[in-house]
Computed example of a mutant assay.
Amino acid sequence: MAQGSSRNASVRSEIAVGILELLDEHTDREHGVTAVWLAEQLGATEKTIRGHLHALRAMQPFGRRVDRITPGDLRNMTSVDPRSGWYIEPVFDTAQMRLLADGAALSRSDGEYLRDLIARIYAFAGRSRQFGIRGSLPTPKHYNREFLNNIERLNDAIAHERSIRFHYCEYDVDGDLVPRLDSDGVAREYAADPYDLRYKNGKYYLICHLHPYDTLAYLHVERIRDLHVDDMDHTVERAFDSLTDADGDPVDLTEFLDERPYPSAGPAVPVRIRVEGGLEPVFDWFPDARATRIGDAVYEVTIRSTEQGVIWWALQYTTSGVRITVLEPQSIRDELRRAGHILLDRYE
Rank of each mutant, 00 (worst) to 15 (best):
R333N: 10
T139P: 12
I151K: 05
V186Y: 12
P287C: 03
V186S: 13
P263A: 02
V11L: 13
D241E: 13
N76Y: 01
T45F: 07
E335V: 08
Q130W: 02
S242T: 14
H26G: 00
L56K: 08
P82G: 03
R68C: 03
I273L: 15
I303S: 06
D24C: 10
E146M: 12
S305Q: 09
R7W: 08
P140W: 01
V282F: 01
R225M: 15
H160R: 08
A95L: 13
G43W: 07
A35W: 00
I324G: 02
V91A: 03
Y122S: 01
G51Y: 11
G135P: 15
G85P: 04
G321Y: 09
E237V: 12
V173W: 06
Y199K: 02
G321D: 07
Y171I: 00
M77L: 11
G248Y: 10
C169E: 00
M77C: 15
D93S: 06
D24G: 10
E307C: 08
I15D: 01
L344A: 10
S79Q: 03
F124P: 00
T235Q: 06
T45K: 12
L23F: 04
I151M: 15
V298L: 12
L243N: 07
S264C: 03
W312Q: 09
A297W: 03
L38A: 02
D93P: 01
V322S: 09
H209G: 15
I303D: 03
L336N: 01
T139E: 08
R290I: 06
V173I: 00
R165Y: 00
V66T: 04
I294Q: 05
L253T: 05
S10C: 10
Y205R: 09
L53P: 13
A55P: 00
Y299D: 07
P250S: 07
T254Y: 03
F256Q: 07
V91I: 14
I88M: 15
T34S: 15
L344H: 08
V36E: 13
D24E: 14
F286V: 13
D249C: 09
E46K: 12
I118H: 05
T318I: 05
S320P: 02
R29F: 04
L42F: 05
D241F: 11
